[in-house]
Amino acid sequence: MNNLSFHITDITANSIRANASEIGLHIEEQDAQIIIRITDDGSGMDEETVARITNPFYTTRTTRKVGLGIPFLIQNAEQTGGAVSITSKPGKGTEVAASFHSDHIDCPPWGDLPGTVAMLITGNPDINVRFEYQAGKTTFSISTNEIKEILDGIPLSHPKVMLLVKEMIRENIRP
């Protein structure tokens, strides 16, 4: 995973597979630190599973025998002097929080954060994705439910909606 947006895509894909109806994506940039927190109300995991998901040779998926998303996230965060924490409860959901030191030479670039968030929102119309971004005095938030209300019946899957959401995010955040 060579950028932060890929990590967000991977973790939120886990939330979708866990049948989440709510996904929160909170990003905070302060000083030289990036904090990414992803929460969901999906099926959650027991303590044993949480302990095992940091192992690249453990996965709950049946289509392959390795699960590299969390181990790569941990590696990338720790390379910058940051860390990852994972908390989860069966039937309640999961929270993954990662911190990165953005001034470290090994900090991955953002990639296409606006495109990633727009695709997450428009590609999963049955999930309320809440995106919050904060950097200094800049704050921006948007959710699937808010967009649906504004669109008043226009489907999220319409290609122009995806472009609109992406541009709205791009204009309001700084990465």
Rank of each mutant, 00 (worst) to 15 (best):
P155T: 03
S157H: 01
R130S: 12
K92F: 09
S15Q: 07
E149Y: 08
A118D: 04
A118Q: 08
K148S: 00
K137Q: 13
K92Y: 08
T54A: 15
A77I: 02
R61A: 07
P109M: 04
Y133A: 11
G93D: 06
P71A: 14
T39D: 10
L156V: 06
L4W: 04
E132R: 14
D46F: 04
F57E: 14
S21Y: 07
K148R: 00
D106V: 10
I121S: 06
T122G: 11
R52I: 06
D40N: 08
K137S: 15
L156R: 03
G93H: 06
I27A: 06
N55W: 12
D40Q: 01
A77G: 00
T80E: 10
P159E: 07
I23A: 00
I86R: 06
I154E: 00
V66T: 15
H101M: 14
A13F: 10
I38N: 10
V96Y: 03
F131V: 04
H7Q: 14
R170Y: 03
K166V: 03
T87V: 01
F131H: 04
E167W: 05
I150E: 07
I169Q: 01
F100V: 06
I173K: 01
S141D: 14
I86E: 02
G69E: 10
E167P: 01
V165I: 07
Y133D: 07
S99W: 09
N55F: 13
E149L: 05
R17F: 15
E22T: 08
F57L: 10
L4T: 06
N2I: 05
Q33Y: 12
P109A: 14
E146C: 02
